[in-house]
């Protein structure tokens, strides 16, 4: 499903001529329908790894394949098609402030031209799954941090993605809510969706008893599901 082959990513920097090394020679493979945690402290390269997977960034070196396709060789139209298969939960939620909870989630379906009834039904299903259906008419500014994160999760799940990428999805949630979200991810995973969760909470990954790829300063230092 996902292959990282000697991937490095260096961001340009005004401070250093060499730039900032976010990922350094990262190699791993994730099978279809796997549930994988990418763990590591802040700055370890977790978010960069996810951004590379949605082709928001391109690697400085190495190759990334998703579903057998080399992301570097994809044309713009193919990138759009790829993104339609991926549900992404961003660390900052990236909700649109001037749209209601319902519209934020429905956006994903509307850009694909889904029928109005279908949009309504699937959006409400997704909001029900994260417990936010009663707040479908609210704007993001009226929600708590945890609620906003759950809207982002609903938006990622509404299209039943083949691959779900979550960047610190439980960062603003209490333990109980975090547990609920993880259970939701497990349900999604059992339906065949590959799930990749980036988190700094090693305890959370340990509790879930799933494969864990540990990053440190941009390098893979441990992979519980494969050789490093």
């Amino acid at each position: 499903m996902i292959e990282f082959e000697h991937v490095s990513k260096v961001y340009a920097s005004t401070v250093s001529a060499e730039g900032v090394q976010a990922l350094d020679d990262v190699t791993f493979m994730i099978q279809k329908a796997e549930f994988v945690f990418v763990v590591g402290p802040s700055g370890a390269g977790k978010s960069t790894l996810l951004r590379l997977l949605v082709r928001e960034e391109v690697p400085t070196e190495g190759e990334i394949r998703v579903g057998g396709k080399n992301l570097l060789r994809l044309r713009r139209r193919s990138i759009t098609r790829l993104r339609r298969l991926i549900g992404v939960i961003f660390q900052d939620g990236r909700l649109l402030p001037d749209r209601t909870v319902f519209d934020n989630v429905a956006l994903v379906l509307r850009v694909r031209g889904a029928a109005r009834d279908d949009v309504r039904w699937r959006t409400q299903q997704a909001l029900r799954a994260v417990g936010l259906l009663p707040k479908e008419g609210a704007y993001p500014r009226a929600l708590s941090g945890g609620e906003r994160q759950r809207v982002a999760i609903a938006r990622a799940l509404v299209r039943e993605p083949v691959l779900l990428l979550a960047d610190e999805p439980t960062g603003d949630l209490d333990d109980e809510s975090a547990g609920e979200i993880m259970e939701l991810f497990k349900v999604v995973n059992t339906r065949g969706t590959t799930v990749v969760v980036a988190t700094h909470e090693q305890g959370l990954a340990a509790r879930m008893r799933q494969r864990t790829i540990q990053l440190m300063a941009g390098r893979v230092v441990k992979d519980s599901g494969g050789a490093v």
């Binding site: 339609r84 298969l85 992404v88 649109l96 850009v111």
Partner: peptide, 15 residues
């Protein structure tokens, strides 16, 4: 920001 999100959820450039 909205366009970024739209791109990431798979909206085509035409849209």
């Amino acid at each position: 920001r909205e366009m970024e999100v739209m791109r990431l959820v798979g909206a085509g450039e035409g849209l």
